[in-house]
């Protein structure tokens, strides 16, 4: 599938996955890949704090949009801020600060399950309707919260029978269930527990939320390297190539090679198991040995993302 085609599949892409699997990294790589096709990208960061802006060498994000790179803008989207916005738009500006500062939001949010999530998703919907960018990327909350986050509008419809929040929930459901408007990209690592959790999450999202699922991003894959693990073979190769390899060095080389080979096998078998249990295409992002995530590394990941998407058949 061509990258431009992938990027124009849905206007909102929700990137979700358990904590520590590289959700933010994936969001950044996807943003960069999309921006290269000439599309404008807006990244929405739901959790106040994340390393996203640092990857682009920029200061921390705020509720005001900021440019991270040409074609890529980003901002935070926290429930408190979304509520202020909401009240403001509803002509209740004077009361809004008090509501948030008094901690009353916590009480109201508790009284209405999923209220915070609705506020955030409602804001996403507003940005989507306004066509704030060609592609809107939402870096979703971590952990198993992704499912409850996406289920929140349905829960809210049960809990609240009247009022503007109910309308908001209904509008959000419309957006979530329309593949032209929204899809979810799930991120995982090629390891046992993350794969198991991803499979559960994927089924829950399809069955209970009804959001369309895009390809799975498998992050942290060791770049494949063919290595020999046997010290005798190393010695033979050294003689053939006419170079000196000390015994100690040969041992280190062999042990490192063995570790690489085992992890490569393990990762491949986990990726296969994922493919068996979940009939969705996979896009693999490499593990980065060489450096911290910065702009050059993001480019490497964006390349890998592009290659991965282009290898997929047209849907």
């Amino acid at each position: 599938m061509e990258l431009t085609r992938f990027c124009s599949t849905s206007r909102v892409v929700i990137v979700a996955g358990k904590g520590g699997v590289g959700k933010t990294t994936t969001t950044a790589a996807l943003a960069l890949a999309a921006a290269r096709t000439g599309m404008s990208v807006l990244i929405l960061e739901v959790e106040g704090k994340s390393g996203l802006s640092a990857m682009f060498g920029r200061p921390p994000l705020t509720y005001e949009e900021m440019e991270l790179a040409p074609g890529i803008r980003a901002r935070t989207l926290t429930p408190d801020e979304a509520l202020l916005d909401y009240l403001h738009n509803a002509g209740l500006r004077r009361i809004s600060k008090r509501l948030v500062n008094s901690g009353a939001l916590d009480v109201v949010a508790t009284a209405v399950p999923g209220m915070k999530d609705i506020l955030v998703l409602g804001k996403v919907k507003q940005l989507e309707l306004r066509r704030a960018a060609d592609v809107i990327l939402l870096d979703a909350p971590a952990a198993g919260h992704a499912v409850s986050f996406l289920l929140s509008p349905r829960g809210l419809l049960d809990a609240v029978r009247v009022g503007p929040i109910r309308k908001q929930a209904a509008d959000v459901i419309d957006m979530l269930s329309d593949p032209v408007r929204c899809q979810v990209v799930l991120v995982t690592l090629p390891e046992e527990t993350p794969v198991n959790e991803l499979v559960d999450t994927a089924f829950a999202i399809e069955d209970r939320v009804g959001v369309s699922l895009g390809p799975i991003v498998v992050n942290g894959c060791y770049p494949h390297l063919e290595v020999i693990e046997d010290e005798d073979e190393i010695e033979r190769d050294a003689q053939l190539a006419d170079v000196f390899v000390s015994e100690r060095e040969s041992r280190d080389l062999a042990r490192a090679a063995e570790f690489r080979a085992r992890r490569q096998e393990l990762q491949a078998s986990e990726a296969d198991r994922l493919a068996d249990r979940l009939p969705l295409p996979q896009v693999r992002l490499p593990f980065l040995f060489h450096a911290e995530l910065g702009r050059p590394e993001l480019d490497v990941l964006a390349d890998a993302f592009t290659t991965g998407i282009e290898a997929l058949p047209n849907a």
Binding site: V227, I228, A256
Partner: peptide
């Protein structure tokens, strides 16, 4: 043999 050794050093 040379390329195999190079891969081993890269890996280490």
């Amino acid at each position: 043999a040379g390329s195999r050794l190079a891969a081993l050093y890269d890996n280490l």
